[in-house]
């Protein structure tokens, strides 16, 4: 691929890959922006949700997904965990000169299919081709808008003592999938990423329990990242039951070899929800009834006492360990 400069070659690329993929009916609206009817929004809720995220991943394609699918799911999920119904996405592509056209087409197709499956249209976008070495294959930025119903009050600062913490399934599948797919770590297992759009699951959960207090997708930093943020923002102490954490045995195996903790591995299809204790069962049931929540579990609770801002992992023998986020690369701490 050699399409720098924005001339006809670039136009050609957009036509062949992007317009053809995102507007298969041949009605390319080549305006520079997407336009919405405000009344339609107002009918669905009282607040507009707006989010953006950049995606870089190596390798670009991996078991269970690729960077395109990731870019759709990531932004849909960022909207979903705020209780928003996603309405539309935009996508920006930075393409490294030399990226195989066939590969790009596969990724863009996957992206379009994911958006269609999620019923969230990609309504506008941009592409740039940069010289070799200026980026790593392909970077995608997606932005999404959504609408939040007036009765949803979901906030990372909303957890209260006694609340129950749930997750919709196993930890670390995406992170482990990427590590295995890198190929240089000689891990002879294939693990599928959990990459999935969570807005439908979130909607089902909110239908059952509109009073959900806090919700977050557990992406980079894993469950540990979400819980430490939750504990900080809500000024509460959180206790996690280690035995209740769903972890696939392949993921546990990879973690053991590499010396990693599934608690810190990235997920791309997992959300953490905090509900009042009286809603815990209903929330769990609603999650489990959804295909993306069959392995949902209650994993811990917000403690009635304890130092605010702390997360404690409690093992099956009652042993307790503090969970903290490393400042950067994890360095050995055992003396």
């Amino acid at each position: 691929l050699a399409h720098g400069g924005g001339g006809t070659a670039m136009r050609d690329l957009i036509e062949r890959v992007f317009v053809a993929t995102f507007h298969p009916e041949g009605t390319p609206p080549l305006e520079d922006q997407a336009r919405f009817d405000l009344a339609a929004f107002a009918a669905h809720g009282d607040r507009l949700a707006f989010t953006t995220d950049g995606f870089v991943v190596e390798p670009l394609e991996f078991p269970g997904g690729d960077i395109g699918k990731l870019a759709v799911c990531g932004t849909v999920n960022d909207l979903a965990v705020g209780g928003a119904r996603p309405v539309a996405l935009s996508a920006g592509f930075i393409i490294e000169e030399g990226l195989e056209l066939e590969r790009l087409r596969r990724i863009v197709t996957s992206m379009a299919m994911e958006a269609a499956r999620a019923q969230v249209p990609i309504v506008t976008g941009d592409t740039k081709v940069v010289p070799r070495g200026a980026c790593d294959g392909l970077f995608i930025t997606t932005t999404g808008i959504g609408v939040i119903r007036p009765d949803y009050q979901i906030s990372i600062a909303g957890a209260r003592p006694g609340d129950v913490i749930l997750i919709n399934g196993s930890l670390g599948d995406h992170g482990a999938a990427i590590l295995c797919a890198r190929g240089d770590l000689a891990l002879d297992v294939t693990i599928k990423s959990d990459c999935a759009p969570l807005h439908d699951l979130a909607a089902a959960l909110l239908q059952a329990v509109p009073q959900v207090r806090a919700m977050r997708d557990a992406t980079r930093g894993g469950l540990a990242g979400v819980l430490t943020e939750l504990a900080e923002a809500s000024r509460v102490a959180i206790g996690v039951d280690e035995a209740a954490l769903p972890v696939r045995s392949e993921v546990a195996g990879v973690c053991e070899i590499l010396g990693l903790d599934p608690l810190y591995l990235a997920n791309e299809g997992k959300l953490v929800a905090v509900v009042a204790p009286e809603h815990a069962e209903a929330a769990l049931e609603a999650m489990r009834a959804h295909p993306l929540g069959v392995d949902a579990a209650i994993i811990g609770k917000v403690a009635a006492e304890g130092r605010p801002g702390t997360v404690t992992l409690i093992n099956r023998f009652g042993g307790r360990r503090a969970v903290t986020m490393p400042s950067g690369e994890q360095l050995p701490r055992i003396c």
């Binding site: 890198r182 240089d184 770590l185 000689a186 891990l187 070899i257 590499l258 010396g259 360095l331």
Partner: peptide, 23 residues
């Protein structure tokens, strides 16, 4: 032992910090 995986980690410099440790 998972020797090949460990060697790969060392080669890739993945979670295999260098230490001049007596321990």
């Amino acid at each position: 032992r998972k020797i090949s995986a460990l060697r790969a980690m060392i080669k890739a410099g993945f979670n295999a910090p260098l230490a001049s440790s007596a321990g």
